[in-house]
Write a protein that binds this DNA or RNA. Structure first.
Lengths: 242, 242
DNA sequence: GAGTGGTCTAGACCACTTG
DNA sequence: AAGTGGTCTAGACCACTCC
């Protein structure tokens, strides 16, 4: 949807880059040209270009122009340093999801969850445990916590489809930001069972707290990945604020 | 330095938040008020607020205002989910750095480096190996590669101080962005020796390619962390571009 | 209805790069 | 000197929230 102009321009140019109509090291048309071709003001063009820059598509250079730094031919390369944030999702392996448990508990059972979601001991929370399998092997075990109050209709059906789609499309909530933390841990006995594994008994643990656009914490997630299968990719820009 | 107004406003407000003059869940003065107090236009105020939002300080809400989501009292908490990007550096443990090797090689010796930095086989590159120690224990082993041409004056002295400061202050170059990749790997025999470890024989491997603001790749870095000591923290926003 | 943030405009001046 | 991006302005209209 997103009716605003700078998002449309962003989409159009980012598609052009991803589909190879602009290649790495190409220079985009100047802001002045883009103003003409899209028939918008310069600040609007600049908002689109800033989005492209934040998301790792281009690098703007004073006096020179906007240079494409994203290499679409690398899109499906696994081998080396992969590039780009939005694409990550697409590249992900296909997993089948199996909901192992979906139960309500009083929040006091899980002090970390209580703290992260700002709950009282007696508030009720869902605990959802899911296995993510790839070619018969469990690669990921997800443990999610939601407050029952905010998410009364949670079901294993939803849990095995897309929870986020349900949240945004059905509940009309908007997910805004999250804090993530990645660590390396030995498997617990329970995990040793959930991963019907043969390899080394270590996992990459990703803990995150997900917030809505009204800043309410909505979800506490602990995602355990088979350490040998885990890869995290990030594009980041250096902050020059001084 | 940065003489522009929105950066000054960003700095001022972010300091106010970090030093507790605004607390979590406080609402900042409205854009209209900020226009008056800083005597700038509204778009300028908005640029500062957008920066604060991208960096995890505030959440803007239509019709309501800008709410502080950053909790300064968590600044030095190690226990739980830590927050914020810029702060990460400050929180880092104190390490002593020991340069173990600094040598020039033809780029063809390191095909990955050659590819990432876009070099020819005969181009010369520095290989720099550094140990980062904390309380006598080696926690990190860094392997860095720079082209000799771009960084002729590299020395172990610089390598044990701050390379980035040298690059930006002395060479007048500006670091702009990087691609990172995190994986967990079994220690090689060499690493087993370098880390006089007791825990699990695994390392967190962070591979990155660092680019300058003219988009030239400048540095290839492989940073191996004692897996049991490794923690990566990220604040991220969900993209709603449709 | 009053106040908030979101988008967009037309124009200005500046700093940097390239010929 | 011409062309590029970086910053800033003053004003407009809209959508949302809260009373």
């Amino acid at each position: 949807m997103s009716l605003n102009k700078y998002n449309q321009i962003y989409r159009e140019i980012s598609n052009d880059i991803q589909e190879g109509r602009y290649e790495k090291d190409d220079v985009l048309p100047s802001e002045h040209r883009l103003v003409e071709t899209f028939d918008v003001s310069r600040e609007t063009v600049r908002k689109a270009l800033n989005l492209l820059q934040e998301n790792g598509f281009i690098q703007k250079m004073k006096g020179k122009g906007s240079v494409v730094i994203y290499d679409s031919s690398m899109d499906f390369t696994v081998s080396h340093l992969t590039s780009f944030k939005e694409i990550q999702q697409l590249k992900t392996k296909r997993y089948t999801t199996l909901a192992v448990e979906l139960e309500q508990y009083p929040a006091e059972q899980f002090p970390h969850v209580m703290q992260a979601l700002g709950l009282s001991p007696e508030d009720r929370v869902w605990q959802l445990i899911r296995q993510r399998k790839h070619e018969g092997q469990t690669h990921i075990v997800d443990r999610d916590y939601f407050t029952v109050e905010m998410f009364p209709g949670l079901s294993t059906k939803i849990a095995e489809d897309s929870i986020y789609e349900y949240i945004e499309k059905k509940l009309g909530l908007t997910i805004a930001y999250s804090h993530k933390e990645i660590t390396f841990d030995a498997m617990t006995d329970e995990e040793t069972e959930l991963f019907d594994h043969s390899g080394p008994p270590y996992v990459a643990t990703v803990r995150s707290v997900v917030h809505l656009n009204d800043a309410r914490p909505f979800q506490y997630n602990i995602s355990k990945h088979l350490a040998s299968e885990f890869k995290f990719v990030e594009f980041s820009r250096r902050f020059h604020g001084e």
